[in-house]
């Protein structure tokens, strides 16, 4: 089972929920946690295991072979991303814009744009007592998170059984990286805070999940601040609210030290139990 934890707004508690939920569920289930926020992975600040595997990750980028090129212009005509530009008798390739679709390479009549692997980041697999943690990290300067997220999900699919509960700590926002991190999930938990900003970005995330036709539910974090608008919004739209994590200073203190929370804050653990029951009964 794959559960993606997403938010719309950044800083609402995706990583706090992902790490604590993974650790908590691992007391009774087989769990793997994946940090798919590859541009700035931070689950690893709270999860410390033994590194058992790491590998470099590559994406395929065309490389121009000047000697074979006939300057027919097919490559730039077929590139939807303007990653291949022809200037007279010169072809420029922009790896940051390339989406590795192979169109320019495959449609080149003289094979003047062979695809070559280019490093984009690395994946690490950590083992803990009773669960696994996968962290992928995009190299500095790389602009595209999607290929690394896709390869990380592939790694998880190839290395863990369907019986494993797979928790995806997703990137914030509603753009391509979030789509990639959530599109294969069986269920999406959207975590938000009960503030006007939280509600605004939650509604964007809800629209995104509706577009993807994904089942989802809401978790309210820092419950007690702000107002009731998120609750009203969810009720009006028939969206289940699975848990309300209270706004407690103790949670912030533990978080700031890089500690997991649920063992020291009973109110937090109660909410995790509600989420676990929801996963068991509803998903």
């Amino acid at each position: 089972m794959k559960i993606a934890i997403a938010s719309g707004k950044g800083g609402t508690g995706k990583t706090t929920l992902s790490t604590n939920l993974a650790a908590f569920l691992s007391e009774t289930e087989k769990v793997v946690l994946a940090d798919l926020d590859v541009e700035e992975p931070n689950s690893g600040l709270f999860i410390h295991g033994n590194l058992i595997f790491e590998e470099e990750k590559y994406k395929m980028i065309p490389e121009w072979k000047e000697d074979s090129c006939t300057f027919c212009g097919e490559c730039q005509k077929n590139c939807n991303f303007h990653a291949v530009i022809q200037l007279g008798s010169q072809i420029l390739v922009f790896p940051e814009l390339c989406h590795s679709c192979f169109a320019c390479s495959e449609l080149c009549p003289v094979n003047a744009l062979p695809m070559i692997p280019k490093r984009m980041g690395q994946l690490k697999h950590f083992a803990l007592n009773n669960f696994d943690f996968i962290e992928s990290r995009l190299d500095i300067g790389q602009e595209q998170a999607v290929p690394l997220i896709a390869q990380t999900i592939d790694f998880i699919e190839n290395n863990f059984t369907d019986q494993t509960i797979k928790i995806f700590d997703s990137p914030p926002g509603t753009s391509c990286p979030v789509i990639e991190a959530t599109k294969d999930a069986d269920f999406i938990l959207l975590i938000t805070e009960p503030t006007p900003f939280g509600l605004h970005d939650l509604s964007l995330a809800v629209e995104t999940m509706q577009e993807l036709k994904k089942p989802f539910a809401v978790i309210i974090n820092r419950y007690g601040i702000g107002n009731d608008d998120v609750i009203d919004y969810c009720q009006k739209n028939g969206i289940p609210i699975v848990a309300k994590i209270p706004n407690l200073r103790k949670i912030a203190e533990l978080y700031s030290k890089g500690d997991l929370i649920y063992n020291d804050v009973p109110e937090f653990k109660e909410e995790l139990i509600k989420i676990r029951d929801f996963i068991k009964n509803e998903i």
Partner: peptide
């Protein structure tokens, strides 16, 4: 309508 690569495309047009 272009999500990506507007800069390179417009540059090419100048050329």
């Amino acid at each position: 309508n272009e999500a990506h690569g507007a800069g390179p495309k417009t540059s090419q047009k100048l050329f």
